[in-house]
């Protein structure tokens, strides 16, 4: 296509975005818009799928049947969320198996939070409360994302996600009203997950290389720092209700900005974890790779069976 034609198409495209008209799969879109979305949606999908691992770790050891049923339902939801998102990526022409192979080879990233271990039952509470809480804060604006299939997937995800956060907070409430040992366990989980939860919103705005373009395309509606601030502001009072202490000595209410000031995030740790050197990176990717390899025969057998059956039908 001639450069002049592309320029006209790009202008038309941006005009649609500016008028809040959704982009649908067969519409013309700039290559970079497509590439950005495929990267973001597939990494989001990987996060949902890898996110099943830290929680799956506790299904067999949930303290009672109710907790076990809830945790199972939650982990099943995460699998569904992964599926909605892989499907959304496929509408952009991404090959699902290729995107999954990119996860396994380390080329594609996923949310760094899932590279932290889940050491006690209280971690199930902290993850639901903080990690799902942060995820909801990230995902609610994505329901208005300019790309139709992604926005629609996020509407479904957000509807389901709200029970996840509540079940986590319920676990934290129970523990922080329990024995001293249980309280300590809840505090310990908060201590370990607080900072990684803040890191979930990504680098500071000044360091975030994709933010400006993504906001212009209305893929992103708020900057990383805006969302992080919002998360801190709603979460601190919740910790107070639990009677737990946020592990940040610099945390204090700032009357002028009507929000909390908080301490400096350890970005070295963030980049180490993103770069593959977190406590569980290897374990997580190995588990995914093993699942694909060990499950390969099931995929093949189901396909062989389906082919045989349709051959019989047409014979």
């Amino acid at each position: 296509m001639k450069n002049i034609d592309i320029k006209v198409l790009e202008e038309k495209f941006q005009k649609k975005i500016d008028q809040d008209i959704k982009i649908e799969p067969n519409d013309w879109m700039p290559d970079d818009y497509r590439i950005t979305l495929i990267r973001q949606i597939s990494q989001h999908a990987h996060s949902e799928v890898v996110g099943m691992l830290p929680e799956g770790n506790w299904i067999t050891r949930a303290p009672n049947l109710r907790r076990k049923a809830v945790l199972l339902a939650k982990v099943q939801d995460e699998a569904g969320h992964g599926l909605y998102l892989y499907c959304a990526a496929e509408t952009l022409g991404a090959d699902r198996e290729e995107t999954i192979d990119d996860l396994h080879s380390g080329k594609a990233k996923y949310s760094s939070i899932f590279n932290y271990p889940t050491l006690t039952w209280a971690d199930m509470g902290a993850i639901g409360w903080l990690v799902d809480g942060a995820a909801i804060m990230n995902q609610v604006p994505l329901c208005r994302c300019s790309y139709g299939p992604y926005a629609r997937a996020m509407v479904r995800v957000c509807k389901e996600e709200s029970f996840h956060q509540r079940q986590g907070f319920e676990i934290m409430t129970k523990l922080s009203n329990g024995s001293q040992e249980q309280k300590d366990m809840a505090q310990d989980a908060l201590n370990r997950f607080w900072w990684p939860a803040l890191m979930m919103f990504g680098p500071n705005d000044a360091e975030s290389k994709h933010t400006a373009q993504s906001m212009n395309w209305k893929i992103k509606r708020h900057t990383n720092d805006e969302l992080r601030q919002q998360f801190v502001d709603v979460t601190v009072p919740q910790a107070e209700i639990l009677g737990l202490t946020i592990p940040d000595k610099d945390l204090k209410w700032n009357e002028k900005k009507k929000g909390y000031d908080f301490g400096k995030i350890n970005w070295d740790e963030f980049w180490q974890v993103v770069g593959g050197n977190g406590p569980c990176n290897k374990e997580r990717v190995d588990a995914r790779r093993k699942a694909k390899e060990d499950g390969k025969w099931v995929i093949e057998a189901a396909m062989a069976f389906a082919n045989k059956r349709s051959a019989k039908k047409s014979a």
């Binding site: 599926l83 909605y84 499907c87 496929e90 699902r96 629609r152 997937a153 479904r156 189901a302 396909m303 069976f305 389906a306 059956r309 349709s310």
Partner: peptide
């Protein structure tokens, strides 16, 4: 409502 992958229609 969306899409999915499956070997055949009943799956």
């Amino acid at each position: 409502v969306g899409s999915l992958r499956a070997a055949d229609s009943s799956m």
